[in-house]
Amino acid sequence: MVALIGMLFVMYILVFGIIIFMNYLDFNDSNYQRASNHTFWQTFFDKGNMGEYNIYRTLEKIKGTKLILTNLYIPKEDGSTTEIDLVMITKYGFFVIESKNYSGWIFGDEKHRNWTQTFPNKKKFKFFNPIWQNKGHIKALQEALDITDESLMQSFIIFSNNCELKKITVTSSNVSVGKRNQLKALLKRELQNTSPKLTTEDIKYYFQILKPFMHADDETKQLHIETIKGKLSKL
């Protein structure tokens, strides 16, 4: 019996090692570390970073001219910052992505301030409408880039595969809500139904403007966290 347990343990370690190794190879094929400043270990063992990385990896595999930014801390008029998880700039415009690593059942309506996360044990938690949240991100992005044309902006709210989107009501044509395993299909649908608006030079120009907002220092991140906590306490 002891020998069997030992063999199973060795097999578990071996399988886990293979998973780590395969993920490491995939990570090295990605530009995510340079974009985010997160190492493989900081990414693989952090749920938030891993979710963001999986989205980034999906964006990298989308065909066509594009540039991707992550963890943008854009200053606002009141002195605070807004954090944008991911932005992909293409000839079709900007795809602004808010990543949500939630589990359970998700209920939400674009018109309601709060959404609900529900678990099988009947526990419920309210969280701020992510569509409204990303709308704020897009507004800050437009101000930073001096863009007034809202048709250039597409809002994507992407949840973890560990949740179930039970009842989500979206009315705006420039908003998409889905799970990570649906992101590729959602992007393809938008790309196929959108006419080109930007040139290759436009993409590079806007990327250079936004690039300095990546890799924020610890002070900026801490101030942002404190601002978010203040807002959450009012929900």
Rank of each mutant, 00 (worst) to 15 (best):
W132Q: 05
K166S: 04
I168G: 01
N121P: 02
I147D: 05
M153F: 09
T148Q: 10
R189T: 09
K124M: 13
I157S: 05
L210W: 10
A144S: 15
T194I: 09
I209R: 00
I209S: 00
I131P: 00
C163A: 03
Q142K: 12
A140T: 09
G136T: 14
N121T: 04
D202S: 15
S195T: 15
N174K: 06
Y206W: 10
N161Y: 08
Q154M: 04
N134P: 05
K124N: 15
N134V: 02
E143T: 08
L141T: 00
L152I: 06
S176A: 15
L186S: 03
D202C: 14
F156V: 10
L191N: 08
L183C: 10
F159P: 07
K135Y: 09
N161V: 08
L183Q: 08
I138R: 02
F159I: 11
T169P: 09
N161M: 07
L210F: 13
Q133P: 05
F156L: 14
K188S: 14
A185R: 06
L187H: 01
F128C: 11
E143Q: 12
V175R: 04
T200V: 06
K122F: 12
L186H: 01
R189K: 15
Y206K: 02
Y206V: 01
V177S: 04
E201D: 01
N161R: 12
S173A: 14
S195M: 14
S172T: 15
F207W: 08
K126M: 14
T199P: 03
F156Y: 14
T148K: 09
I138A: 06
S176G: 12
E143V: 06
D149K: 02
S176R: 12
K184H: 15
F156H: 12
I147A: 05
F125V: 14
K124G: 11
D149Q: 01
N174H: 11
K188C: 10
T199Q: 09
S151I: 07
K122N: 14
L183M: 14
Q142G: 13
N161L: 07
S176P: 12
R180S: 08
K188L: 12
N181V: 09
K135W: 07
L165A: 13
N134R: 02
Q133Y: 05
D146N: 10
V175Q: 10
S176D: 13
K139C: 08
Y206I: 01
S173N: 14
F156D: 07
S151H: 07
I131R: 04
I209G: 00
R180P: 02
L141G: 00
I138Q: 03
K122T: 13
F156T: 07
L187N: 00
E164V: 13
N121W: 03
I203T: 05
L165T: 11
Q182V: 11
A140N: 07
G178Y: 03
L198I: 12
I131M: 09
I158S: 02
E150V: 03
S172L: 13
P212N: 11
I209D: 00
F159A: 10
P196A: 14
F207M: 08
A144W: 12
W132G: 03
W132I: 01
F127K: 12
